[in-house]
Design a binder for these strands. Sequence first.
DNA 1: TCTTTACACTCTAGGCCTAATATGTAAATA
DNA 2: TATTTACATATTAGGCCTAGAGTGTAAAGA
Lengths: 201, 201
Amino acid sequence: MSGKGAKQTSALADTRRRALLDAALTVFSRYGYKKTSMDEVARSAQLSRQGLYLHFATKEELFQAAVRNALENSSGAAVAALTSASLPLDQRLVRAFDEWLGRYIGIMGGDASDLIEATSRLSGTMLTQYEEMFSDAVTKAIRSSRFLAASKSSGITARQITNTLLATARGLKHSSKSREQFVRGFAVAVKLLCNPIREHS
Amino acid sequence: MSGKGAKQTSALADTRRRALLDAALTVFSRYGYKKTSMDEVARSAQLSRQGLYLHFATKEELFQAAVRNALENSSGAAVAALTSASLPLDQRLVRAFDEWLGRYIGIMGGDASDLIEATSRLSGTMLTQYEEMFSDAVTKAIRSSRFLAASKSSGITARQITNTLLATARGLKHSSKSREQFVRGFAVAVKLLCNPIREHS
DNA sequence: TCTTTACACTCTAGGCCTAATATGTAAATA
DNA sequence: TATTTACATATTAGGCCTAGAGTGTAAAGA
């Protein structure tokens, strides 16, 4: 049983569900919550409107599931990137933040406030929870590397480094027009922060 | 002659003008451009509405002058902080970014889009020009210090460091609830970036 | 001369209504 | 069983109008 509800879900249905949620997220991101119609989402997913209602009883439920799906995808890919031990820390960090934030650059239409309002109303603390999960994973990755040792003399904690990276990534997300630009900018930031390692190794 | 127009302006009138512009900026920031009335600005500056019209012919002119005044104050204080040679680079950077961005934390009301629209419509490229000026000053300050030498082996330019600092500051501005929190967070960021100096000095 | 009071003009805010669109449900179909 | 067509309800968009507030100008006062 791969689903999470009481309803039996096949692997195929699960795949379809994810495709619907991905399509929904795209449409919601582009037009905002209110201006997005179920019909638009259905069309975008090659489906009739009522076929969509078979999967999600209400628009609110669809939105909530789409947000959860996106957060699950992002945080999953980000944590996976962070814990792939074969790569050096700086590359893992760049990939993780790209999955967490970079992938959402340039897909959002003008009405950001509507999306924010809907998210905070319908998804409650979900966003915060995933943020903390991601934040913890980054902190852990930093602690597990030799990176921290170099900064220890300055009295800077791994958590502080994480917060700085988060702030930099958020700032870059706003000023970057493309995902590639974001990655390039963040790679520079990580390189700067990782200098102590290389200098001491 | 301290003014910039053809009209003769005394030092006193200039001081008054600045007080008006400061008051205007506060009101505009809190309520946005459209929702702000000339009456509100005048009251906030202890003045009648028509007294205000003697100084600024239209609301648009007032807004433009207020934005210019704010940018002038911020960039002036920031550049002054950057070039006060007595302090180490990290402290100068923290003060400069605090003047440039930190001072505007928490003074803005909910309608940011209105302010952004008005600024880009009425102030044209003014904001970009001051941003470049500040950016250049930061880059210059970094170049003039021993900071860059430590990073030279990594192939990172002073301009890239500046961009990283700018991104971090913008991200912190969004996530910080108070100016003090912003300064603390940015101090950590600068400390991290300045580690190479201390390690090598 | 600088500031305030008084006045015409403009514009936005809100109520109301209609048309249209969107949501959610039930029956029909492959 | 999974999907589509048909339908009732709810919500929103736009037009129109009035009331009120806001802008900019001209005359009066300190």
